[in-house]
């Protein structure tokens, strides 16, 4: 049936190959222009890390005449960069592990168990979707200070977990619900308890969704700026986002150096993106987009 229809539509299009071709050409022209607008600044930044500021001004897209590796070695040879990388890693690992654990448990309760007031409690948890951490950081900062978590990694990690819970729980709940209840019945017949079903059946099946949460929360925690800025008065705790702002403040218009620092962050980000794109898209679209 489908094959027949494709055939029909093809035969309908055949008299107009020229029009189709110009349409295609037009489409590609738009797409390539937009791709250049997206990639242009990124490529300029990465190449710029190897240039002097003068070269960057005159030829933003050209290759450097002599690559200035000292832009990079200057940053990499200082202990500060590695310290900040470690701090970023601590924040990411702490935030991601705690968000995944808490929201998987919550999503299980809200998707698979039946009890009074379930929807009400679930709605209470989704309320947080309205308050992104970028807006709520002032009240959060006051609370972090009251709990004397200033200069503690937990002062950044726990708020990020709290603000990650609503979205992650919502996404995971959708996936958990899609797992057929026959599997649940079968596992109970085989002698699994509720927790056994959760651990041995549900979690392994929901691996793509868990992967999506890990990746999305990694991006959030790695990129967070204002919370660490307010919470860490001690700059030995600073993550890379604060480090690069300080670096930029220090070397303001020495764009070659600044771009070297930018590249050190953006090249891993692009690689991470290429490797995890599937998970990101799964998480954001509820697993609908393929190919």
């Amino acid at each position: 049936m489908t094959a027949l229809m494709t055939k029909l539509s093809r035969s309908r299009r055949r008299p107009l190959p020229l029009r189709l071709w110009t349409a295609r050409l037009f489409q590609y022209a738009i797409l390539i222009t937009l791709a250049l607008i997206i990639l242009g600044p990124v490529i300029t930044a990465v190449l710029g890390g190897l240039k002097t500021t003068g070269e960057l001004y005159d030829q933003p897209f050209g290759l450097p005449s002599v690559p200035r590796w000292e832009n990079y070695t200057g940053i990499l040879s200082s202990g500060v960069f590695w310290r900040q990388l470690l701090n970023s890693a601590i924040i990411v690992v702490g935030t991601v592990s705690m968000t995944v654990t808490t929201s998987a448990l919550l999503a299980f309760v809200f998707s698979r168990l039946v009890f009074r007031g379930r929807e009400l409690i679930f709605n209470f948890f989704t309320l947080g979707l309205l308050f992104p951490v970028t807006i709520a950081f002032l009240p959060v900062f006051i609370q972090v200070r009251q709990l004397s978590l200033i200069d503690s990694y937990f002062g950044v990690i726990l708020p990020l977990v709290a603000f990650g819970i609503p979205g992650s729980t919502l996404i995971l709940r959708g996936f958990f619900r899609a797992i057929p209840s026959e599997l649940e019945d079968a596992s109970y017949i085989d002698g699994c308890g509720t927790i056994g079903f959760f651990w041995y059946v549900l979690l392994p099946l929901a691996r793509p969704a868990l992967g999506a949460i890990v990746v999305l929360q990694t991006i959030v925690a790695w990129n967070e700026y204002f919370l660490p800025l307010l919470v860490f008065t001690d700059d030995s705790k600073w993550p890379l986002t604060l480090g690069i702002m300080q670096f930029q403040g220090q070397f303001g218009t020495d764009w070659g150096r600044v771009m070297a620092f930018v590249s050190l962050l953006i090249v891993p980000a692009v690689l991470f993106y290429i490797l995890t794109q599937r998970y990101i898209v799964t998480g954001l679209t509820g697993g609908e987009l393929k190919g």
Binding site: F125, G128, A136, L147, P159, I165, T169
Partner: peptide, 12 residues
């Protein structure tokens, strides 16, 4: 989840 969520999102 409820503990972290309440302490660092709802209460603030």
């Amino acid at each position: 989840g409820a503990l972290v969520y309440t302490l660092f999102l709802i209460i603030p």
